[in-house]
Every structure is written in structure tokens, then in C-alpha cells.
């Protein structure tokens, strides 16, 4: 399946891109993050991240569909 990934803050710096399309066999965000973390050498563990799919918060075990927009959200620091 093909996913659209967006990156923010330290993850954007580490991956060197704001967005990328990725063909993957990962069926849920947990598996997808494991692949992405290895591919880009990301050091943030999933316990410190939240997941959003298609613009809404989602669980790590949510079933992904072809074309989904997936975002791994680092701890927020607005305000």
C-alpha cells in the first residue's frame, strides 16, 4: 500500500523532509513507524509519539488503507 507521511518538528529535521510517499506492507501505524524509524534513523520511541491518520488522532493498531495520510506526532510544545 502507498501512504502519505507528514513530518513535523524534530522528526522533520531528522528525516529532512516535510512529507513523503512511501510504499509499504505495514498494515498499522505501529509497523509503519518501525519501518520509518529505521529508514530515517529516528530516535524517538513510539511511547513518546501520538499518531494521526487523515487528520484525526488514531490508535497505533488502527488498520491503514491505501492512500492514508499518516503523521507521527512528537510531544507538542505550543503556547
Amino acid at each position: 500500500m502507498q501512504y502519505r507521511l507528514l513530518y513535523f518538528a524534530s522528526l522533520r529535521d531528522r528525516t529532512g523532509c516535510a512529507a513523503e510517499s512511501l510504499v509499504s506492507t505495514a498494515a498499522d501505524p505501529r509497523a509503519l513507524y518501525a519501518q520509518v524509524a529505521e529508514r530515517h534513523g529516528l530516535s524517538l520511541p513510539p511511547e513518546r509519539l501520538r499518531v494521526a491518520v487523515n487528520g484525526e488522532f488514531a490508535g497505533w493498531d488502527r488498520s491503514l488503507r491505501d492512500g492514508d495520510e499518516v503523521v507521527f506526532l512528537p510531544p507538542v510544545s505550543g503556547g
Partner: peptide, 23 residues
Amino acid sequence: IKRRVPIWKNEFYADGASGWLHP
């Protein structure tokens, strides 16, 4: 807002470094 909204702050320091802040 500070706890839940996906907004991130990058601080640029006088020593030339910068860093994204986390809680």
C-alpha cells in the same frame, strides 16, 4: 492547548544552536 494541540516550538539560542522543545 499546551498539552494537546499539535504545535511545536523551536528555540534559536544565542550560541547558534537550536532545538525543538518537548514537554
